[in-house]
Design a protein around this nucleic acid. Structure first.
Length: 517
RNA sequence: CGGGGCGUAGCACAGCCUGGUAGUGCGCUCGGUUUGGGACCGAGAGGCCGCAAGUUCGAAUCUUGCCGCCCCGACCA
């Protein structure tokens, strides 16, 4: 940040004035940038100040800090349970993909070629000309290894040995791991060179079964996004142009962020027999005939944390959905003397245990090196859904101050029955932030029927529901002129014939256009 | 890879133009007063001024080279 940043108008008045810097320092130590003034700066600051992640010493790679990682762990837990409930098992495949594997499925290879990290040597040695280490030229690998950008190649090479009979199918495997895609420009959680994800890879005996699987997992993702993240999503199909490299069909869930831009929150692919053919994975069917297996793959990434932030948070900081909040309830004592604190703690300790017993993750912050006001602001910044404040006055009245993060409202409640109240409140917050996000999306989704309307609206942001003639040429032309892409062809909307917003040709249904992350 | 900007304390920055004891705020340590929405006062600790070479009696400051990072574009979950 510098003094010429447009979000700080004062700096324009006194760009040379050292007070400008002092003022900024003071300002920055407290308030966040405002969403309305500088959305991306607001996002970056939330990630850092809420202690979720930071840039690492390694270009393009992030350090996910404990608080951010705790959110990922909660996401993993919920998703993993859902994968298990739909019959999947976890396994682990190698980080390295021999180049020859990656080459086998041609479209796949082409799609990923330009963003691969390549291992060429297996040894370093002392630099004979001075300090440090150099790559040992005698340790060149016979075949280069690619750091996995995705694991279809390694996995289908393995499946070849696992699949012989229809009895071996379906094969339903998932893995949690890291992957590397060499990105030009990165942003914490949204796009980094290395990121964490899960990738499901399944093999089936029939085309229909594989398509059902791809759609089933899309449903799982949608359920997770809506019920856990509180993020309303549109289920859809990608256009051929936006498809995963090597897929027959790519399904996706698309969400709207608070700046009106779209973010893809998960994808599921029907891969047909492309990988089975590339890796020669055949099975004998019930009629004793050899057939290629049918495949799917599906994944969600740490990008969902970015989606979570951008969907719900406000100018005071992070707003976490209770189901994914590492700390759901924080209790803050308000006291003057150590004796008061002891008295308050006596009352809080059983309450703390009771909340814990009710399955609520609760933190009692009785640390003495920060004042209560500081704690209020800090936990607000970190998005803790519910805050309970207890002071001497409350002890006299038998009350607790209950503050909710989503509405920033406070009320005094009797301490008796507070656990039940908190439990209901957490549910209410979970529901409220979903409804808020849904309302926002609805208010920023527009039916657009003319090209002029399209060009005007896209500048203001949001989802544009418009007819498209189905050609790649039109799709490319629209992208070229407006930077808007077809986010998806919605699965659940009815066919309703019309005319393409760009070419005027016939169109069967509206698709979702937006600028995207 | 093209265009722009920046490297000075843990963080954010001033100082550089015009060379001469390295500064400010936040944070940190200690002491005191405070404490229902980011307290205040006092005393401290903390620096190869990105790296290297050059100019000079003297370089954070001038010159040259290198390295790194950030922003804007093309690519992308």
């Amino acid at each position: 940040m510098n003094c010429a940043d447009a979000s700080f108008p004062v700096s324009f008045l006194f760009p040379q004035n050292p007070l400008c810097a002092l003022w900024l320092n003071d300002f920055m130590s407290k308030a966040l940038p405002k969403r309305s003034e500088n959305y991306s700066e607001w996002y970056n600051e939330i990630v850092k100040r809420a202690d979720l992640a930071e840039n690492s010493a390694v270009r393009g790679c992030m350090v996910i800090k404990p608080y951010g990682y705790a959110i990922w762990e909660k996401m993993q837990r919920a998703l993993d349970d859902m994968f298990k409930a739909t019959g999947h098992q976890n396994a682990y495949f190698p980080l390295f993909v021999p180049k020859s594997f990656l080459e086998k499925e041609e479209e796949h290879a082409e799609g990923f070629a330009k963003e691969c990290a390549v291992v060429t040597h297996y040894r370093l040695k002392a630099n004979p000309d001075g300090k440090g280490l150099i790559v040992d030229p005698n340790a060149k690998l016979e075949e280069e290894l690619i750091v996995r950008p995705t694991s279809e190649a390694v996995i289908w090479n393995t499946y070849k040995n696992w699949i012989q009979s229809w009895r071996d199918l379906p094969l339903l495997i998932n893995q949690w791991c890291n992957i590397v895609r060499w990105e030009m420009r990165t942003r914490l959680f949204l796009r980094t060179t290395e990121f964490l994800w899960q990738e499901g890879h399944t093999a089936h005996a029939t085309e229909n079964e594989a398509i059902e699987e791809a759609e089933r997992m899309l449903e799982v993702y949608a359920t997770f996004a809506e019920n856990w993240i509180g993020l309303p999503v549109i289920l859809g199909l990608k256009t051929p142009n936006e498809r995963f490299a090597g897929a027959i069909e790519t399904y996706c869930i698309e969400a709207m962020m608070q700046d009106g831009k779209a973010l893809q929150a998960g994808t599921s692919h029907f891969l047909g027999q492309n990988f089975a053919k590339a890796f020669d994975v055949k099975f004998v069917n019930k009629e004793n005939q050899l057939e290629f297996a049918w495949a799917t793959s599906w994944g969600v990434t740490t990008r969902m944390i970015g989606a979570l932030i951008m969907a719900h948070s406000d100018d005071n900081g992070l707003v976490l959905p209770p189901k994914l909040a590492p700390v759901q309830v924080v209790i803050i004592p308000i006291y003057k003397t150590p004796e008061d604190l002891a008295t308050i703690s006596e009352k809080v300790n059983p309450l703390f245990e009771e909340l814990k017993a009710a399955g609520i993750s609760v933190k009692y912050d009785d640390s003495e090196h920060q004042r209560s006001g500081w704690k209020f602001a800090e936990y607000e910044l970190r998005g803790v859904p519910v805050r309970l404040g207890i002071g001497m006055r409350d002890l006299e009245n038998g009350t607790v101050e209950v503050a909710r993060r989503d509405t920033l409202s406070k009320e005094s409640k009797p301490i008796d029955g507070i656990v039940q109240h908190v439990r209901l409140l957490l549910d209410e917050i979970q529901e409220n932030i979903y409804n808020k996000a849904l309302k926002f999306r609805e208010e920023n989704t527009f039916m657009v029927d003319t090209w002029d309307q399209f060009k005007e609206q896209i500048e203001k942001g949001g989802f544009l529901m418009a007819h498209w003639d189905g050609t790649a040429e039109t799709e490319a032309a629209i992208k070229e002129e407006t930077k808007a892409t077809i986010r998806c062809i919605p699965l659940l909307s009815a066919e309703m014939a019309g005319k393409c917003v760009y070419s005027g040709k016939d169109s069967a249904k509206r698709v979702v256009f937006a600028r995207a992350y």
